[in-house]
Structures are given as C-alpha cells and as structure tokens.
Computed example of a mutant assay.
Amino acid sequence: MGQAFRILATIVTFNPDISSLTKNLDKISRQVDAVLLFDNNSNNQEEIKNKSFAQNIKAFFNSQNQGLPINYNRAIQYGLKNGFDYLLILDQDSVFDDNFLTEYRKNISDNSICLVPLLVHSNKNYNDSYSTRTKGETESVLRSINSGMLLNLKALPVQLRFDEDLFIDCVDFDFFEKIRKLDFKVLRVNSAKLHISLGNISRIGPFFLYNYSPFRLEKQTRDRVIFLRKHPISAFSLWLFLFTIFCDTKAVLFEKKRIRKIKAIAKGFKEGLFFRMSSHQNP
C-alpha cells in the first residue's frame, strides 16, 4: 500500500442491492489492505455467496440478523489480532469519493482516536436543507455516524467497544458518547466526503419523510429508548427524545402502512423500556 500503517475495512450487509455492493467492495478493496464482509442473513445471501470477491475480501455469513455492533466488535478483534493499525467502517449503500482514503491518510495521527468524514446526503433537497457547515480542512466534532469512521486500533482502549445491547440505531451515538467521556478527540476531515442515504426520503409540504419499514422503526425506537436510559441527562439526549417524537408523528400521520408502523413503534418502545442492559456494556 506504500504506507507505514495497515487499514482494515468492514461492511455489514442486510438485503443489499448486489450491484451497488459489488461496486463498493471493488472500490474499497483496491484502497485498503483487507475487507471483512458480514452478512446478516439477507434474503439474497446465496447470491452474495456466489459472487467472486477480490482476494483481500473475507466474507462471513450469519444465520440470523445480528445487527451492527456485534459485527463491528468482531472486526475490531480481527484487526487487533492480525496487526492492522486502523479499522474503516462502511455501510452497504454509502458511496465515497475517489480521494476519500487519500484525504484520510493525509490526516492520520496519534492525536485522534477516530477520523470521520463530511456527510453528504444523496437526496439533494434534504442535503440543501441539512448540509453540514464546515470550518477549515479539519475540525474536532463530538459525534458522527458509523459509516466512514476510521478507528485507530492501536490507541483503542480495551473498554471502548460498540454496545451489543443495541441493534442498529444509536450504535454510533453511544460509541461517540463513550469517546467523549474518555476525553479522546474525533477529527472530521472535511475533504473526505461520504454520500449517504437516509431511508427513502420524500417530502410533504415543509416536512421530510424517511419512509422506514415497520421493522426498522421498531428497532430504531427500541435502540433510542435504550440509549436514553443509558444517557438520560444531556442536551443531545433531550434533542434525540424530541426528534424521535417528531419523526414518529410524521411517520404515523403521513407515511404508508400507518397501522403497522404504530404497532412497530409501540413494540419497540416496550422492548427498549423493559430491556435488561448488560452491565459490561456501560463503562
């Protein structure tokens, strides 16, 4: 790779678009030393198994949907065991610019435990309304999302892992909250752009709708309740609480499958409220 450090990338998939996944894997496999693919029992898992991957891609196929954090932690352990210096986490549908890794490599240092990208929403109207304001080439930030995160494995404390009590939502928020409490720095590289998709965005009047499936809404609600139980007193928790109420209200008023979504939100709230959290996940 022509660098003094080795980068491992990981992608967790669930019912991915095969064409997009293939393009992303081909692109990232040429820019990092190795890639770990974890498939969470996708409906098209057999099709993924039959794909020909680059030699530096290693695929694992779960027999059930295990969510994100357990697989992220497996990637961390694999990276530490096999001498990698950094772990790059990507989503199955996130698209990065050609210079993405080049810009990251320019800013790698021991001063930051984590690099994160500048997020660009694939929906132009949404991005125009909620684009990120930047200050300079890089800047310290408190949080980002899972996708695009570059973790410094050599500097990662043993207690800093992804919370396996969570499933898919708030996995990133919880991880960055742990980073903050340990007084580590997170550096956003504004020249490293990651293009992301949030659900299937549509618009009604002044409101953006995410149009998540009932299953996703259930897990989203569950995870947010667990997160709020873990971190009840903060400005961000208050914002997340109000934002969740706002989004759920939009979903049940304006989106399709309203009855199913109401039931999913109620089920997720109950699951999160009565979930028995693991003590070792709350350092």
Rank of each mutant, 00 (worst) to 15 (best):
T132W: 12
Q159E: 15
C170R: 11
N125L: 05
P157C: 11
V158K: 15
F167R: 12
R133V: 14
F175C: 07
E164L: 03
K154P: 08
L156I: 08
F162I: 04
D165M: 02
D172Q: 05
D165L: 04
V171I: 11
E137I: 07
S147H: 02
V158G: 07
F173E: 00
S144W: 07
T138P: 09
G136S: 11
N146H: 03
F175A: 02
N125K: 09
T134K: 09
M149H: 01
I168Y: 13
S144T: 05
F167N: 12
D169S: 15
C170M: 14
D163Q: 13
L156V: 08
E139P: 12
V141K: 02
L150Q: 05
F173S: 06
L160G: 05
S144P: 00
I168F: 11
S144Q: 07
V158Q: 14
Y130N: 02
S140A: 13
V141A: 00
D169E: 14
A155Y: 00
R133C: 09
A155N: 01
D128E: 13
R161S: 12
L166P: 03
S140H: 09
E137F: 12
S144K: 06
Q159M: 10
A155E: 00
N125E: 12
D128C: 09
D169V: 09
Y126W: 11
R133N: 14
I168R: 11
R143Q: 02
S131N: 15
K154Q: 14
E164F: 04
T134D: 05
S147F: 01
C170H: 15
L151P: 02
S144G: 06
N146A: 06
D172H: 06
N127R: 08
L156Y: 04
Y126K: 07
G148P: 07
G136R: 03
D165H: 01
T134W: 02
A155S: 02
S129G: 04
L160F: 04
S140F: 10
M149Y: 01
S140Y: 14
F173R: 05
L150C: 03
D165N: 15
R161G: 08
N127G: 04
G136T: 02
D172F: 09
T132A: 01
E137T: 12
N127S: 07
F173Q: 04
E139D: 08
D169Q: 14
L166Q: 05
V141S: 03
R161A: 08
N127D: 15
F175R: 03
L142T: 13
N146L: 13
D174W: 09
S129I: 09
R143K: 06
Y126R: 09
Y126D: 04
N127K: 01
S129C: 11
I145L: 14
V171T: 14
K135R: 14
D169P: 12
I168G: 10
F162S: 03
L153P: 01
S144E: 01
L156E: 08
S129V: 13
L160Q: 02
L156N: 04
